[in-house]
Design a binder for these strands. Structure first.
Ligand SMILES: Nc1nc2c(ncn2[C@H]2C[C@H](O)[C@@H](COP(=O)(O)OP(=O)(O)OP(=O)(O)O)O2)c(=O)[nH]1
Ligand SMILES: [Mg+2]
Ligand SMILES: [Mg+2]
Ligand SMILES: [Zn+2]
Length: 584
DNA sequence: GCCGTTTTCGGCCCGACTGTTTTCAGTCG
């Protein structure tokens, strides 16, 4: 699956260039849907190409199959090269400006040669836009405003930042009598790893009261809009929060619409259309326009002979058909998590003492906690020498006596060295209850070497869990170059579990890879990677990511009670396919 | 550009807002 993402990006780039050409929107959508389907595909696109089966991918027909084949074989696509010569690719930035879509972006670079936000702002300030067909004074002013705003802040928010803010707003408004129902919606409700904007839905018979309360919340720094249906504010942390206000009897259909994703909405509405009915944010309607349902999501899905679809699955990745066939997964829930498998203390780079971490874990209702401080080569994190590691074990033994039946397990987050060896000798690894291995150095190496490096680490028979397998840091560091597909194969072979690290800027393994991992029978370890007691709450983001990967409790290692976890730790390497091939 | 036993051509989700509009294109969620 090495090149699936690459092909998806290629098709998305073409779609953007076609937008700039102001091409037929359906043709553009064909490229973007094909790209999304290829990204989520659970088979290797090169394999499909070799077998001449590319057109079996949904959204890929003769024309796209030929283009993909050319690209995979030659590393280039003639059509794309021509487009790039024809259209200034950097002008795609213009499409980011609210108020500018394909038609206006096309006019801007065609008539005025504008290709950057900077140039756009300048042209607007010099009043060069108002004379373009379809433009005018007001639009020019708006574009100047939006362009200036965009030059400051464009990044998407981390889920772990945005959702708590949204929940504060929700909690504050829930106390108002006029508010009959309220939920975070959009990508927040779907628990997507990053969030474009904070969308909240309210059901009420008294919109004025709700809007009034909303714009007077203590977190409000600035009121951006005060309409009765779509008020909007800026918080003190400069986060924009949009409220959407609807009548209570339309709450379900509005929530369904506003939760999305767009792709889920389109697919669902297309299915409804094929039945001769209609679905919108106002409800589900039959062929006579009679409203069949609108109050709850459950009613709407039920009338479509579907099970209710958890928001995390609403990405048009097969959930609609699964709901129809009543084979949706029973997604893992946070209360099913019985312990944390990855946490740090002040013995390395954590902020809190081991005892405090343990008390916090107990307070969360856990049965066990894996203490996994860093290994010696990570000097910036004060990695533990073998002596300190053994001293920590003594402490754990003592504390365990006091906190029984709660159980502290000693683990370590062991650095995978650049040659794939591990940062503690085997006899030390053998003394640990849990060995997590992860890459923390020498990120910049050829994909083949990085892949071999990690697989070599997994081959070590003491290894239990592979930590943050892509190394990405959302909004700041790309994943390192690695053939994750091969790594998953190795993990499956050796019986190694894979972590879904819950740090808000990691969420690593990413959601679509979780699905690929569990399909291979790999166990998932949901972890907080907490560096303080508070960060044990990161478990929430880990579980959310696992849910987006269609994971059930049985796929998650730490839904097991302590005895079963211990049993797994003792036997998983022996039972693995790779065990027979291991040298003694 | 894709798709289909109602269609191999003509659809492709649906609704709302804005402003430049003289009847609606463009954009957005
Ligand atoms: N039916 C329909 N619904 C849409 C469309 N665009 C957006 N929506 C719905 C589904 C989205 O989840 C919801 C909110 O729109 P957003 O643009 O905020 O998208 P979303 O929150 O999913 O992602 P984001 O993280 O904000 O980029 O509105 C559309 O073209 N058609
Ligand atoms: Mg929004
Ligand atoms: Mg949104
Ligand atoms: Zn860690």
């Amino acid at each position: 699956m090495r090149r699936n993402e690459e092909v998806a990006l290629l098709l998305e780039n073409i779609a953007e260039l076609l937008m700039l050409k102001n091409e037929n929107p359906y043709r553009i959508r064909a490229y973007t849907t094909a790209a999304q389907n290829i990204r989520a595909l659970d088979v290797d696109i090169e394999e499909l190409a070799r077998q001449g089966r590319l057109d079996e991918i949904p959204g890929v027909g003769k024309a796209l199959a030929a283009k993909i084949e050319e690209y995979l074989q030659t590393g280039k696509l003639q059509y794309y090269e021509e487009l790039k010569r024809e259209v200034p690719i950097q002008a795609v930035d213009l499409l980011e400006v609210p108020g500018i879509g394909p038609a206006r972006a096309h006019l801007l670079y065609e008539k005025l040669g504008i290709t950057t936000i900077q140039e756009l702002l300048q042209a607007a300030q010099e009043h060069k836009l108002r004379d373009l067909p379809g433009f005018g004074e007001k639009l020019e002013e708006r574009i100047a405003r939006e362009a200036a705003r965009l030059m400051q802040r464009t990044k998407r928010l981390l889920l772990g930042i945005a959702l708590p803010v949204a929940e504060d707003v929700v909690a504050a408004l829930r106390g108002i009598p006029a508010v009959k129902a309220i939920d975070p919606a959009g990508s927040l409700r779907r628990m997507k790893e990053t969030i474009g904007d904070i969308d909240i839905l309210v059901g009420t018979d008294d919109p004025e009261a709700v809007v009034d309360a909303f714009i007077h919340l203590p977190i409000v720094k600035e009121v951006l809009a005060v309409g009765p249906t779509r008020p909007s504010i800026l918080t003190r942390e400069d986060l924009q929060v949009d409220l959407r206000v609807v009548a209570p009897d339309e709450y379900g259909s509005a929530l369904l619409y506003f939760t999305g994703s767009k792709e889920h909405n389109i697919a669902l509405r297309t299915y409804v259309q094929e039945r001769g009915w209609k679905l919108s944010e106002y409800g589900l309607f039959d062929e006579n326009g009679t409203r069949l349902a609108s109050r709850t999501e459950e009613e709407i899905y039920r009338l479509l002979d579907m099970d209710w679809i958890p928001p995390e699955l609403r990405e048009n990745r097969g959930e609609i058909q699964a709901a129809r066939e009543h084979r949706l997964p029973k997604l893992v829930e946070q209360q099913e998590i019985r312990g944390d498998l990855h946490a740090h203390t002040d013995w390395s780079d954590g902020h809190d003492s081991l005892e405090r971490m343990v008390q916090a874990a107990i307070a969360r209702g856990y049965e066990y906690l894996v203490i996994s401080d860093h290994s010696p080569s990570l000097t910036v994190a004060r990695g533990l020498t073998v002596e300190r590691l053994r001293a920590q074990r003594e402490l754990i033994r003592e504390v365990n006596e006091r906190v029984a039946p709660f159980r502290i397990l000693q683990g370590a987050e062991v650095n995978i060295q650049s040659d794939g060896t591990l940062d503690y000798p085997d006899e030390v690894l053998a003394e640990l209850d849990v060995v997590i291995v992860s890459v923390h150095s020498a990120f910049d190496m050829p994909i083949e070497r990085m892949t071999e490096r990690v697989i070599r680490a997994l081959a070590n028979p003491h290894v239990d869990i592979l930590g943050h397998p892509t190394g990405r840091l959302l909004n700041s560091r790309l994943p390192y170059e690695i053939d994750l597909d091969a790594v998953l194969d190795a993990a499956a072979e050796y019986g190694v579990a894979i972590e879904v690290n819950g740090q808000p800027d990691r969420l690593d393994l990413p959601d679509i890879w979780v699905q690929r991992a569990i399909t291979r029978g790999i166990m998932i370890a949901c972890t907080s990677d907490a560096h303080s007691t508070r960060q044990l709450e990161n478990m929430r983001w880990s579980v959310a990511t696992a849910r987006r990967g269609w994971a059930e409790a049985r796929h998650i290692l730490n839904t097991r009670p302590l005895p079963e976890l211990l049993d797994w730790l003792a036997t998983h390497r022996e039972r693995s396919r790779g065990a027979s091939r291991r040298t003694p």
